[in-house]
Design a protein around this nucleic acid. Structure first.
Lengths: 339, 339
DNA sequence: CTGAAAGCGCTTACAG
DNA sequence: CTGAAAGCGCTTACAG
């Protein structure tokens, strides 16, 4: 039989209200009384009943926010779905979710979104931040104001954010190279199409990839180009790279841009070309079914959104901050057969 | 603002008790009153508040059961962990979990475990059933007695079980062959070590594997042996097979038995041998780190247990039977780099 | 067939 | 600094 506030109150000879104040550090309890209550709770192994808590929370009207820099982006749609699913499960606490979608790394826009969230009175925010000092400062000011903030999918330094939830980028690149180790154990001449060299995560992926490639016999990275996550840019970049480097026998798409890049490869001939990409959007799945992309390394976008909200909930409602500063998703290998 | 029983009661001009009876089909409500209540609820988009429900359920002392035929088995330990995690999340409903572990496919033992569960008054059971008529009948009698039953990890036919939760065995075999397609695109001579040819799942895996192999140029299954999930049997089987078939260049472990089987391969020489296994126990991970097993296809054991309890909960507490008869896990590819 | 009341566990506004 | 009481939403034993 689980222990309740009522039982602790009886044992301590005080009212349930006092037990609540002591247990939750709300103050206004005589120190020696507080101490005794905490001891009794500890001894009896008290854990709050979630349902009781939920019902009482109904009147608080809490809300969480999520800010992702990606409008009409299939990947972030999944992150949002995960976040919605989690918050739906907290519906009995009367918690709601505010969503803000940005586009094109517009710092002013993201600052405004943070302001709106604060004005709306959210208790916690998950954000995929643009990595610039203005955002850093803004995040720190919101934390000072008592709002719980964590980063999702991309991280930002010098802030008091609770934790980072997202891809283990370095290991993602290592895993991509691992597939190559099995498929093309030597003589790799890799061309990399990254998103932006200003994106920390993309660089970590490339580092993991090239560190691993160095351990394979006679293998090296021939060239790197940026796609800026734009289809046309990716097309031109891949075309330029494949033309300038006819020795390239392997393409690694370390970010979005696989669709445009693959079109260039198709135009120039894909014979003997091994291709690894990231994520599994519909277009990537289609290229895999055609046998043009051989493997893709995914990062559980749904679970990123889900976990982010779970961590905010634990921090805010259960007063339990995350155990780890980095909450990494699994790097999931998909090939045609397990799409 | 979500709709509550109280609001429906006011609109319908009846008491909350009557609304509860109508909404949950408990009978004792005048048909026209019931109809009106259901209409109002429908129209207002009523969904029961989980916390309210949980608190009221505290007094019911429900319990669920799980029966897995595997004592001291690392794989099933994960299934159990998942089940415990899910039931912990239902603690606020006062629900508890009963666990029964069997060993060695003992039908009498499993029948006794089912009896115990029923005597203990569980509301639902997840079972990894031994596939024999006695168990079929027993399961059907328990369902007749009002207990919700579902199968986990292995299935059984001719029963009224709610659904099956577990590996998509056929696709697991297809995925194993898919890795071969990338690593050794032609000339495969495969030796298969299965668990038991009496296990439906193992056979489905082999079927998926060999169907896929047939589509690869100059590739075929050279031989099949059973391990009966025993290390020594697996060792002898692999040794016999590799000796009799020196042309074998690929080993596929379609069940447990990889550890014993790999020892035979090591003793006879692993040069040029490609090895695919199932699951990722500690011993398999160790063989992968040594580069002896190249890829393993996993089936999310933790999630199997978790989902099984979730489905029981939905069926029993929310009166919502599972949407699908087959709840398949993802087939997760692991290589050394993403262990 | 129906309603009023109590209770599940936690929190809070109010009174003292 | 503390307690008594009400309330969150749902269910049920009891009375009629």
């Amino acid at each position: 039989m689980p222990v309740t506030v009522k039982q602790i109150a009886e044992l301590a000879g005080v009212s349930r209200g006092t037990v609540d104040r002591a247990l939750n550090g709300r103050g206004n309890v005589r120190p020696e009384v507080e101490k005794r209550i905490l001891e009794i709770a500890e001894e009896m192994g008290y854990t709050p009943n979630r349902a009781g808590k939920a019902l009482a929370y109904q009147r608080k009207n809490l809300s969480f926010g999520i800010i992702v820099n990606a409008e009409g982006n299939e990947f972030f749609d999944d992150v949002l779905k995960g976040a919605r699913m989690a918050v739906d499960e907290y519906a009995d606490f009367g918690i709601t979710l505010r969503v803000a979608c940005g586009r094109g790394y517009d710092v002013g826009q993201q600052l405004a979104q943070l302001d709106e969230m604060q004005a709306a009175g959210v208790s916690g925010i998950a954000i995929s931040p643009i990595n610039v000092p203005e955002i850093e400062e803004k995040i720190n000011r919101m934390i000072d104001a008592g709002i719980a903030v964590l980063t999702v999918n991309s991280d930002i330094e010098n802030t008091g954010r609770l934790c980072y939830v997202g891809c283990n980028y370095y290991q993602s690149g290592v895993t991509a190279a691992g597939m190559l180790r099995l498929m093309r154990p030597s003589g790799v001449r890799a061309g990399i199409i990254t998103g932006s060299i200003r994106m920390l995560g993309h660089n970590r992926r490339m580092k993991g990839f090239s560190d691993s490639l160095k351990k394979m016999p006679d293998s090296l990275v021939s060239d790197v180009e940026e796609s800026l996550d734009e289809r046309d840019v990716a097309y031109q970049a891949a075309r330029r790279m494949l033309t300038a480097h006819p020795e390239i026998n392997t393409l690694y798409f370390a970010a979005a841009g696989a669709v445009g890049g693959m079109q260039a490869a198709i135009d120039l001939g894909t014979e003997g070309l091994t291709v690894i990409s990231c994520d599994d959007t519909d277009e990537i799945r289609s290229l895999m079914r055609q046998g043009l992309i051989h493997a893709t390394i995914c990062q559980e976008p749904f679970r990123q959104g889900y976990r982010a909200m779970q961590i905010l909930f634990d921090a805010i409602v259960n007063n339990t901050p995350p155990a780890e500063e980095f909450c990494y998703m699994d790097n999931i290998i998909r090939i045609r057969e397990n799409l």
